[in-house]
């Protein structure tokens, strides 16, 4: 029997590291050269198929990186199952910001949250300021998943989301402090087509 899991994913990171572009590539496989900065938090969904039986639906909250929207972020990571903290490999300052996001998540978010560190813009490898070793080392220290992506070329984007989906606790229903819905668990409420109708005897026969 096929199972669908639903997880809430939140994207965090400094502004202009490419969070929205990453999501756009993941959800619609598109890329905008000129993208306006996000206002508040955008909402998108995407389903990942792990194997024939298991699909994972991500409810993605793409938060704005600008400082003035910082107060919104807690509302979205508070009951998230996973978080993707994005940094820009051409800006070492963005990794610092990512570190502070990770610290905040470890302090404030759900303890079971899966955090992935994601270095974006690998297409600009020539201007790299953050080495892979440095980021990898930090991720290992903190026990984070790590990957490098390029939203522009699409490299590594689906890999990192699939990796997250695999790491999520697929056996137990995901802990969702904010919402307790049937669709979040593996046993999804719905219509079972194989079930034999009980009232067959009553339905036949005319009304007179």
């Amino acid at each position: 029997m096929s199972k669908q899991f639903q997880f809430k994913l939140v994207l965090l990171g400094e502004s202009a590291v490419g969070k929205s572009s990453l999501v756009l590539r993941f959800v619609k496989d598109q890329f905008d050269d000129y993208r306006e900065s996000t206002i508040g938090a955008a909402f998108l969904t995407q389903t990942v198929t792990l194997d024939d039986q298991t699909t994972v639906k991500f409810e993605i909250w793409d938060t704005a990186g600008q400082e003035r929207y910082k107060s919104l972020a807690p509302m979205y990571y508070r009951n998230a199952n996973c978080a993707v903290v994005v940094y820009d490999i051409t800006q070492s300052a963005s990794l610092e910001k990512a570190r502070s996001w990770v610290r905040e998540l470890q302090r404030q978010a759900d303890p079971s949250i899966v955090i992935a560190l994601c270095g974006n813009k690998t297409d600009l490898n020539a201007r790299r300021q953050v080495s892979q070793e440095e980021a990898k080392k930090y991720a290992d220290e903190e026990g984070l998943m790590w990957g490098e992506t390029s939203a522009k070329t699409g490299e590594g984007v689906s890999d990192i989301f699939t990796a997250i989906a695999k790491k999520l606790p697929l056996t137990a229903p995901p802990s969702r402090p904010g919402a307790n819905r049937a669709s979040a668990s593996g046993t999804q409420a719905g219509v079972d087509l194989n079930r034999n109708p009980v009232s067959t005897e009553q339905t036949d026969g005319c009304n007179c």
Binding site: I39, G40, A41, A42, F43, T45, E59, R68, Y69, S71, L72, A179, S183
Partner: peptide, 27 residues
């Protein structure tokens, strides 16, 4: 930011409902 997000979400809900994505609208 909260007020802005509120306005934004209202439009999102409307959009999701018109596209008949009721699960999204619910979220």
């Amino acid at each position: 930011p909260l007020l802005e997000q509120e306005a934004l979400l209202e439009t999102f809900v409307q959009e999701a409902t018109t596209k008949r994505k009721f699960e999204n609208a619910q979220t």
